[in-house]
Nucleic acid binder design. Structure first.
Lengths: 289, 289
DNA sequence: TCCTCCCGTCCCGCATGGCGGTACAAAGGA
DNA sequence: TCCTTTGTACCGCCATGCGGGACGGGAGGA
């Protein structure tokens, strides 16, 4: 039985970061982030020389950046002087999702949905032109976490991506789409701006999005957004499964469950518009003190 | 029933990063890392002004840094112009542990140990003067992942920290200890360099370390290191439980199981000394392509 | 409604940080 | 053994990014 998850493709989407864009520039920092990305894409630790080559950097520049990054524990070096991502990133990353704290709040609804529809359910948020997976529940397993949460996929070929994008403001949609670099994953992948815009219209009409084998053949997903009170799509939930089970006939039924779940979640999050400076953000959980 | 985990205390240890140390300086980058840390420590998103205040930075400097960090998705801003950690960190962080890939390899042994001793078992690695939790198994639950993995604790008051530290080279030990800033968590916390050194000697003699309510009253832990072939302690495993169950009588028995487990793991990792450039590091799992 | 305060954004000139050329050391292969 | 390759260290010059400050807009208060 094949892995039925759209997460099984791409991991990082470096196109999210457009270097040199915007008036504010800090070359050192941007270079450092690039280093992190290059290291992230590599499956083996890289030496100074290899990094220089891949990034076309001068030795001393790269060396300096590496030393600082290492001091900050954002990268670490192996005994043979190669570099890989550091565990401080793990710490910071976990802190990041704790701060958002969608996972814990959403989980109960989530689990119920997975049992009801009998398919894998995902939670994700939008990040530039990608979606980042926060949670996954499989109906048959007891275990909640998958090793693949934390990865990302492009916005234009996932149901959750389209679901979130569709309900942004027109300007935001415009901006986001203009940054997308379309890549064809299957023959069904949406590869032009026009088709994507059309697709988003359909999403708005229906209230949910479909990924019809657009990122992986044999996998269909149905995704719907979670809104905060200002009707801002802050996250999305999807149901994914093999095309044999998620068919034209079954979609409306599944979508109904999905939409009900998303409405419940949106309501449960009960987000009030924040008022003044020291009010705790409803996104943020207090913990630890 | 109280939370019996030493992970329930401190999260980030900012003392790990000693600013301005070392000859290589990239102020912009170091400032950026500090921003990430300040954001990490805050439970609510911070405004530009608040950040300036906490870091005693000038408005424009902080503003510039924030813009670049936001472009890189290392931070994100809320609709009300406050900043929090970005999900790119989550992505990178997950990638970091995937690259180390200790978790997956260690898990089976791990699980067995938890069942045998009937207590919570942790896996962690050393990072400067902290340990970072990678995995946790509780004997009674089916679920493997805890929400608290990814957090860290000081090296000097955890069994795993002492276990890993004790088997470093004398110079490394010296260096690490010199960077520690001792904080008293309980009346049993080791708070001086001398006591720590003594404690480490005992660890070396016994092969395992004990945290005797040094970070939280009522909690005892026994920790032992995992070695690679060069006898380098790359990680540690611990058994933790209430002081009522982990007593002077039961410690040797538990420690025996623990040490056996660690030996198994060390052997199973089967790390050969790497030889040349393009050999895949045994630490690193190939995946995705 | 106006005024006031505060906060985020933007601009600009100066000096300093950090770029990159280079030299050196160390390790490994031939 | 030499020679290549890779990491570390130093240094002078120039562009970069720092910080002062101006501007605009939003939120309260009177």
């Amino acid at each position: 039985m094949p892995e039925l998850l759209s997460t099984s493709l791409a991991t990082t989407s470096p196109e999210d970061i457009v270097k040199g864009e915007g008036p504010y520039q800090l070359h050192g920092l941007e270079r450092a982030v690039s280093v992190l990305e290059v290291l992230s894409e590599s499956d083996v630790p890289l030496s100074l020389a290899e990094l220089c080559q891949r990034m076309s950097l001068h030795k001393s520049t790269a060396h300096r950046a590496l030393m600082v990054l290492e001091r900050s524990a954002l990268i670490e070096r192996t005994p043979e002087n190669r570099f890989r991502l550091g565990l401080k990133l793990y710490e910071l990353g976990n802190r990041a999702v704790e701060q958002i704290d969608l996972r814990a709040r959403v989980y109960p609804f989530f689990r119920r949905l997975a049992l009801k529809v009998g398919e894998t359910v995902h939670l994700s948020v939008l990040q530039k032109t990608s979606i980042v997976y926060l949670e996954k529940v499989e109906p048959n397993r007891r275990v909640c976490m998958s090793s693949k949460t934390g990865t990302s996929n492009p916005v234009y070929c996932t149901s959750m991506g389209k679901a979130m994008l569709a309900f942004q403001t027109p300007e935001t949609i415009e901006q986001t789409i203009s940054k997308i670099r379309f890549v064809r994953y299957t023959h069904k992948t949406i590869c032009t701006r026009e088709k994507l815009v059309k697709s988003l219209e359909r999403v708005r009409r229906r209230g949910y999005a479909i990924d019809d084998e657009e990122i992986e053949l044999g996998v269909r997903c149905i995704g719907a957004p979670i809104f905060n009170e200002n009707h801002w799509p802050i996250a999305a939930v999807s149901v994914s499964g093999p095309s044999s089970r998620i068919t034209a006939q079954s979609v409306p039924d599944i979508a109904e469950h999905l939409l009900a779940c998303c409405r419940e979640i949106s309501a449960a999050l009960g987000m009030r518009a924040r008022k003044r400076s020291h009010v705790t953000s409803p996104f943020v959980r207090h913990y630890g003190n």
